[in-house]
Simulated assay, not measured.
Amino acid sequence: MKLNKHVMAMNLAAVIAFGAVAGIVAPSVTGEDVVYAAEPVSGGNPVSGGNAAEVDEAFKTAGKEVKAAENDPAAADLKDTKLVSNGDGTATYAAANKEAEKVVIPGSFKDANGNEIKITSIDPKAFEGSKAKSIDASAVALTKLVAKQFAGAKKATSIKINGNQLKAKDISTKFLKGNKKLKKLTVVAKSRQFKKIKSKLQKAAKKTGYKKGTKVKRVSK
């Protein structure tokens, strides 16, 4: 009888150990069932900001906030920012880190599920209350520049954008209005493309309010 109890105890211990990993229902010595929750398997990718299903839902749903995975190279530049899904694999840069004096907006990032998300637009209210002195948005393939696009960044002296996807008709001549300390607007664009949008950019530069005049400069990258 003692031997049988010893064997039963060993079998129960094995079941408990397995149950802790696999998540099963095992009988206890009292005859009641005990449920053991499955533990995560080591080596998996942790999902920050919610479980895998929630991350995918945000990726696919317009208006949902999305986040870069902690181990993504773009995560450092996106720390304390807000990104909103457009529902089509792209996102809008909705709010900058208000304390950052140097802001770099990456062209894309990956969420915790490995979905690659391109940043295609910048909310005109993204820089409200920002302490940014320089803004580099040259990695973002912007298709339009609206009135007061960077107005919240009142301390900005330098802004760099990508002009390769811009059309003159989609550039507001007031997109730099409110940037009264802006000394330089740098535009990444091919020479031929820059000629098409140069006039609009220069008109916008004249409306910053910077007393010495905001300079517009083209660069290849």
Rank of each mutant, 00 (worst) to 15 (best):
G114I: 08
P106K: 13
G87A: 11
A62H: 05
E32I: 13
V41W: 00
N86L: 14
V34L: 15
A38T: 09
D72K: 08
V47P: 00
A68W: 00
F109Q: 03
K64F: 10
A100G: 02
G87S: 09
A38I: 05
A14H: 01
V21P: 01
N86W: 06
A91Q: 03
V15D: 10
N115P: 04
A74Q: 05
T61G: 10
G87T: 08
E116T: 15
Y36N: 02
V41I: 12
A74P: 06
A96T: 13
P46K: 15
A112D: 15
P73M: 05
A95P: 00
I24L: 14
N113I: 13
V104L: 12
E70I: 14
I24Q: 10
G49Y: 00
E116D: 09
G63E: 12
G50A: 12
V29H: 05
F59Q: 06
N115W: 01
G87L: 09
E101K: 15
S42W: 03
V66Y: 00
A20T: 11
N115Y: 02
V47M: 13
P46L: 14
V84M: 10
T90I: 09
K79I: 05
E65R: 07
V15M: 14
V34A: 10
V34Q: 15
G63W: 14
K110D: 04
E32V: 14
N115A: 05
T81D: 02
P106W: 03
P73G: 09
T30P: 01
T30G: 01
D72I: 13
A17H: 01
A75L: 04
V35M: 07
V84R: 01
V104N: 07
K102E: 15
A95D: 01
K64E: 08
N86R: 12
E116H: 03
A74R: 09
T90F: 09
G49A: 06
G31D: 07
E54F: 03
I105V: 13
E99N: 12
I16V: 14
K60N: 12
G49R: 02
E39M: 12
A76Y: 04
K110E: 13
A26R: 13
G19A: 11
P46C: 11
I105R: 00
V103Y: 04
S42I: 12
D77K: 08
A94G: 02
G23L: 09
Y36L: 15
A94T: 04
V84I: 15
I105G: 00
L12F: 04
